[in-house]
Nucleic acid binder design. Structure first.
Lengths: 349, 349
DNA sequence: ATGAAAGCGCTAACAG
DNA sequence: CTGTTAGCGCTTTCAT
């Protein structure tokens, strides 16, 4: 019942033509062994019968599968969504198949996904790690297994796998410097877990800008957590509970900034007047948001493409490719927050 | 060099244990044939060696692949992103693998993707069609091929494949009725291609509400196009060029509404004061947008889950499942637009 | 309870 | 140029 028309196989065509299935296979692939006449006959029949090779059988035979595994923490996420889109587009052009698995910010699930993909014989792996990932063991296994691996966005450096990221540290410094120039002095940071690359690098960039200008943020104004809107909301609540607010907050991601915005609104703290806000990241919707948030725009598509291109080079064993980290330059997107320092805020320490 | 440790096979384990690979296979799968002692030995060795069955080989043998194909027009899209997320989550729970392909709103690419997925022997297909899809032939092929097929969101009814959608028509009627009650009488519609289910149904619901109340919209105020922000922008530009504006526009999607918003802004038409706006769909960001748009919230996750669940039933041949259409009820999300009719707009026809 | 044989569809190696 | 032989790793008869 299922699979009504059993699909045509090489053997079927061989029988019809009275030749061997090997010859058919060779003819189809333009092997030099085969005579032009036979080749044409085979091609014609294949077209007529609508022959499509069985990729499963091909994969079982071949040493490569033209398949690459993609593991992401979630997909309903502005940056990732665009990066994934770019990866799919690029892979399609290169005639590679993508098998994506979603780790749902769960390190254990991430691990099983990676194992599954390995057992599926993917030619390479593209990974953006979860915010919970601590143990690099599974990735070391991948490397030991000699399967090319490229991290992107949320990366684990130092494992011997290439890392393609935004210029996290430099971008954060750029943004905070800009705020300093505008006159801000009392900074807060609602940051991400320091075990996660983007959390760490962005905090580092934040500190760098401040220390150059001899500014030390109030320790109470530095909080760490996850990267979602909920995390931003939570951190902002804590900040409010503590009593004192900085002049301006640097949020580790755009969703975190939105969480801060929501929480501020509920507590009738007006942004940017009473408290100003900038963040790493942006969104397609930013122009419609009130206030639109000044932040760092990340070249998501470019990162996706680069990551895939780099992985393919690794897979193909290109000479001119070395394992290494690439930080794609970022820019400031000037919007309605962080225009200039508005009040003296002498109530602050 | 590549694949340093060749992975362990059934044969490897059989050799080690001095039994046949068939027995190992059976033991692993808990076949009743195998004695408890042997079974334990096999299990122990498998654990020790970290045996993982080769899914490619399994698929070549088995008549099902536990794989389902997913074809979507794009992924950087709020509704789809959430639906896809839900599909992945649900599939993971059911231990099915998803192979997603992105048609990029290109009917030809969509067709080749479907063919590729068929040749990959997916157990079933989950599809949301492109805005260009006109010819249902490829889908008829799928059905003729006896591969279970479920459409979701953007569907093609009447082909004999189940369709899981939002209650497009009813939702549109609900929304427009609400506007009528608030006092609006001069309606415009920036709609989607009538060859696409959501375009057609939402327009139908719009008309239904109006005709019940004996209102006829001005023909100039009805425009059709694609479903993206750009399309909304374009249509709004045309509307402005034409000279007369309706009191309120019903946009076919949230992105289209944003495009309208952007265009209105550039032309210094204030929304909702001068021109009001509602739409089918919403977004996570809506609360932050100014003005936040009153619209229909679609149960994206639910639709994704339902579509997958329905497909699995079809695949499993459940008795209590019939091919049929499901329209998931929707709700109005009341926001800052369409609060009440503000001006008499006697300048209109 | 266990295993030998056969085959899924394809490709690579080696003959003729 | 064309075909035969083998085998990828697994599962499903069918004997033993």
């Amino acid at each position: 019942m299922k699979q009504s028309k059993k699909s045509v196989t090489l053997q079927d065509m061989a029988d019809r033509l009275g030749i061997s299935k090997v010859s058919v296979s060779k003819a189809l692939r333009g092997h030099t062994d085969i005579g032009e006449t036979t080749r044409q006959k085979v091609l014609a029949l294949a077209a007529e019968l609508g022959y499509r090779p069985n990729p499963i059988a091909q994969k079982l035979t071949a040493k490569h599968t033209r398949t690459i595994g993609l593991v992401v923490p979630k997909i309903a996420h502005h940056f990732l969504t665009r990066a994934i889109d770019a990866i799919y587009r690029a892979a399609n052009e290169e005639n590679y198949e993508i098998i994506m698995m979603v780790s749902e910010e769960d390190a254990a699930l991430e691990k099983t996904h990676v194992q599954t993909l390995l057992s599926m014989r993917v030619d390479g792996l593209l990974i953006s790690v979860t915010e919970q990932t601590r143990d690099p063991e599974i990735f070391q296994q991948v490397i030991a297994h000699n399967t090319p691996l490229v991290f992107f966005d949320r990366v684990i450096p130092g494992l011997g796998a290439s890392c393609i990221t935004s210029a996290d540290e430099a971008g954060a410094t750029l943004l905070v410097n800009c705020a300093i120039e505008k006159g801000y002095r009392h900074f807060g940071h609602i940051g991400g877990y320091q075990s996660v690359s983007i959390g760490k690098q962005r905090y580092k960039g934040f500190n760098k800008a401040l220390s150059i200008h001899n500014i030390s943020p109030h320790p109470d104004h530095i909080l760490f957590g996850g990267f979602s809107r909920r995390d931003g909301y939570k951190a902002m609540s804590e900040l409010i509970k503590q009593g004192s607010l900085p002049e301006i907050i640097f949020a580790v991601t755009y969703p975190v900034a939105l969480g801060i915005l929501a929480c501020a609104r509920e507590n009738e703290i007006s942004i940017p007047e009473e408290l100003d806000l900038v963040c790493f990241g942006s969104s397609d919707y930013n122009d419609f948001i009130s206030p639109s948030i000044t932040g760092i725009t990340q070249p998501a598509a470019e990162i996706g493409e680069l990551a895939l291109a780099h992985l393919l080079k690794l897979i193909r064993g290109d000479e001119d490719v070395s394992i290494g980290d690439i930080a794609v330059p970022v820019q400031i997107n000037h919007a309605e927050t962080c225009i200039h320092k508005t009040s003296s805020r002498s109530d602050l320490d």
